[in-house]
Amino acid sequence: MVALAEKYEIKLGKATRDAFGEALRELGGQDERIVVVDGDVNNSTRTEWFAADNPDRFFNAGIAESNMIGIAGGLAASGKIPVVSSFACFILCNGFDQLRMSVAFPHLNVKVVGTHAGISIGEDGPSQMAIEDVALACALPGFTVVVPADEAATRAAVRAMMEHHGPVYLRVGRPKVPVVYRSEADAGFEIGKANRLRDGRDVTIVANGLMVSAALQAHDALAERGISARVLDVATVKPLDEAAIEAAARETGGIVVVEEHLAYGGLGSVVAMAAARRHACPMAFVNIDDTYAESGTPEALMEKYGLTSDDIVRAVEGLAGARKRG
C-alpha cells in the first residue's frame, strides 16, 4: 500500500498482522492459558514471536488446517484459550466444518486469526486471497467477527478478543496500512461498538479493515464537493452495532458500505439487514462484488477491483443522485 499512501500523503503504520503478533506476544506472557496452534505459517502470521517466548504453549500443526482447528477445540474444552492462526483463506475455507462442529456448535472459547486477508496481499494471487472469510465466519452461530482498521485498533482488538469468552474470528492483513488511530486508547475498541470517526449530515460511509482509511479520504474529497459524510468504523461485523446503523439511516438518510470482501454475506449484507430491520434507507455498496481477483501489486488490484477512495466518492454521488431522482 506504499504507493497509495504517498499519493495521499498518509502516514503508514504497521501491518495489522504485525500488530496481532506483537499483542499476542505481550498477552501470552501475561496469561498462561493462551496456547497457539499455527498451520506452518508462523513466520507470516507472526505467531513466531509468541512461540519464541512460550515454546511449551506453541504447536505447529503443519499444513493441516482441519486438524489444527480440532486441536484448538480440545484445548478450549480443557480450559485453554487457544489461538489458531493461518492465512485467512485456508483457516476459514479448509477448516470450515471443523469451525462448525469443533468450535461453533459446542461454543468453545477458540480465537481464530486469519492473516493475509483480502486482495491487498497482491502478487500471490487469488488462491491466497481470502475474500469469502467474513461471510463464512458470520454464518457460524455464536461467533464474534472483528476486522480492525489499523495497528492500534488491532492491538486493542486482540486484547478484547482474549477477554471475551466465546469463539472469535479476527481478520488481519499483510500490507502496512495507514494509521487511523493515534493509540490503542484512541481506538477505543469495544466488541460490538462502531466508532464514529467523522460526523456528517448527508450520507454515512460504513467501512472496516483497511477500507476505513479510504473512507476517511473519501470524506475529505466529498467535503470539497459540499457533501457532508459521516464515517463509521464498524470493526465488529458480528455482533453488529445496529443502533449506530439505525442512527446513520435516520440522521443521514443513506448508507454506503465499504469492504475488502465479496458482496454476498459480508459487512454490506449485515448492515443492509440491520437497516432493513431498523430504518430502511437508500444504500450503496463498494466491495469486490462477485468475482475472484488476480495477481498484481496491491495498489493496482485495489484500483482494478474498485476499492479506492474514488470508488467510494462515486458510490456516494450515485446514491445522492438516486435519492434526488427518487
Binding site: 486438524n67 480440532g70 486441536i71 477445540g73 480440545g74 484445548l75 474444552a77 480443557s78 485453554k80 469443533s102
Partner: peptide, 11 residues
Amino acid sequence: QGLSIGLGHAL
C-alpha cells in the same frame, strides 16, 4: 474430527 479434539485435550 474426534481424534483432533482428543489431541487438544492431550496437549
